[in-house]
Design a protein around this nucleic acid. Structure first.
Lengths: 350, 350
DNA sequence: CTGAAAGCGCTTACAG
DNA sequence: CTGAAAGCGCTTACAG
């Protein structure tokens, strides 16, 4: 019953009157142990509270076989790409675990060409990786990957965005509905009940991402829950990246100059808004956006953006590697599914 | 020049035509190696980019000698004590490092009795600890500890609050001036230029803590920097915990009911304010405070507190152990001095 | 079904 | 000043 005085496999063997090899077999649920012996050893392991020394375990294994993890994320087009950050976190974690036997390989796909995702998946599954880190941007392809991974018993972690899939899956992501609610709280503090609110979805080449929608629904839920009877106006503007948008009713409202306005940009491109407001002579506005990219941070500094919400992309990548490693070496899946806190950034804590 | 193909001490020995024992002596800067041999080996280590396998290194050492860390923090009076949190973080880190050879011992002092701090210090220094985690609340006593620790070459990390000491020291803490500026930003967003601001220092039995002062100065600096010419009124209220305060000019202002009011409580006791406001029929107020204690969180939920700033006390404790361990095993001091980010908490991300 | 032995990469006590 | 050998706790290939 002495759990403090870390005893080892040797002591367990002695207590059970067997060799350490046999104890090891039981510890790893290997075949070739009689039921009686197995039971006796299991009992002693439980009684003594034995836990294996991971140091020693990994020392032996690391030299023999590295854990191989495949990372399949969108193409990184330039130095300022969002995906630089998770990549950085991944590399940091790998550096920390290097001696413990880990190797990674990056694969990239173009989300305008779903086939590029499938193709890389094919490569990954043909090369016997021990784990996969990817994203669920493409629904069908993500499901295909998930199904294959379950069949082949390879753990998968999806970064960045949660989307319902055919089977339960591991996500390391911010709760986007919640993030939208936080944005609602922050904007309402600045704008109050008498202003107007705008949700701006800046469209990507392939439309609106699922987490942008989740953020909008959280934002609306915030007002619905807290100010239902105030009939606060919330307009949605789906703004094409190219800027040749048609003038909708919502845009007319935005371009009027009567009330205080709160603008919630549901993705990382909030930096596009201040210029548009300026061109149309709109003042008395407050902007809340996502992600600490260079342009957003610059406008936060000047006060043209009031709040940014950080998804901690670097931390997401870091955590993904660490948690997969933990699962693969210790069979501990407790960290494969992580909700990243909604971090609020203003000029003074950027 | 091959840095990828992790070679070991054995290969280095072969390249240098010496035994692994000699390589080890050079790696640890031990005596008993001729200058020529040492130089040759150092050259090869550099060329090959050799880094020692910490797994193997710790495996051997952990069995032999545990790293002993002393933790000297204020008494924990009850389940809700602030110091429960760092303690929890410390225990979590120790659990993770257990197999790698670490043991800790907690010591507690009463900050109303500085002598209790000195006495525990005496015990700690007489017992050959490898590292110390403590706090710098007591200036003279902290300096004494620092001087002793430098003499005995024992690394010290101060948690929670930074204070200038006789020699440079390691702190794991939030930048309190910065936190005050963030509070200024948040309150100003809610209250604007036409309201009144109050800094409430709720006194402890021993007066105002140094980080409370730092927070106030940051708060004032925010307004001074950004709204200098708006002549915004900021009143300081030093509020004794006992509640039998005298009516100052500032309090008269607070108890008037004309303008929107922003209240910045510089410590964890912001939960005391809503009741006082209610008793005096003061409405249209916004409160920003510190720390996610039970009472504060309850008032955040009801909207009576607008923002809380989190110092991540659990993370501070966790980081302190991890960074001391890293320093003591790898001689890497890069994480002994950490600035904890100013985390902004609202109801929706609490 | 079980045991004895070699070895992971490093550290250390001992021998010379 | 230097080397050979034992050992940290676990894993594995081999022998029986």
């Amino acid at each position: 019953m002495d759990k403090s005085n870390n005893l080892g496999i040797k002591e367990i063997a002695k207590l059970a009157n067997v060799s350490i090899g046999t104890v090891d077999r039981v510890l790893h649920n290997r075949t070739g142990v009689s039921a009686a012996t197995r039971k006796k050893i299991q009992h002693i392991i439980k009684e003594t509270g034995y836990t294996k020394n991971i140091l020693a375990s990994r020392l032996k294994l690391a030299a023999r076989k590295k854990i191989k993890i495949a990372i399949l994320i969108p193409e990184i087009k330039n130095e300022w790409s969002y995906w630089k950050a998770p990549q950085k976190g991944i590399k940091k974690a790998v550096k920390e675990l290097k001696e413990q036997g880990i190797s990674i390989q990056f694969f990239h796909f173009n989300f305008l060409h779903p086939q590029s995702f499938s193709e890389k998946c094919g490569t990954i599954f043909s090369e016997a990786f021990d784990g996969i880190i990817t994203v669920s941007f493409l629904e069908k392809e993500s499901n295909d990957l998930l199904v294959k991974s379950i069949k082949q018993n390879i753990p998968v972690v999806f970064l960045d965005t949660e989307r319902p899939l055919k089977y339960s899956a591991n996500f390391i992501r911010q709760n986007s509905v919640n993030a939208g609610m936080v944005a609602g709280r922050l904007l309402h503090g600045l704008v109050g009940n008498d202003g107007q609110y705008f949700v701006v979805n800046i469209l990507n080449e392939d439309g609106i991402q699922i987490n942008n929608r989740q953020r909008e629904s959280g934002f609306r839920a915030f007002f619905n829950k807290n100010f239902k009877n105030k009939s606060i106006a919330i307009h949605t503007i789906n703004h094409p990246l190219e800027n040749d948008f048609e003038i909708t009713e919502a845009l007319k409202q935005l371009f009027s100059n009567e009330k205080t306005k709160g603008i919630f940009v549901t993705n990382a491109r909030s930096f596009l808004i201040p210029q548009i407001l300026k061109e149309n002579n709109i003042s008395d506005t407050f902007i809340v956006g996502f992600d600490l990219n260079r342009q957003n941070l610059a406008l936060l500094k000047t006060g043209q953006i009031s709040f940014l919400i950080n998804q901690k992309p670097e931390y997401q990548g870091y955590t993904a590697i660490k948690s997969l490693y933990k699962f693969l070496t210790e069979n501990d899946d407790s960290e494969l599914n992580v909700e990243i806190p909604v971090e609020i950034i203003v000029k003074e804590n950027a």
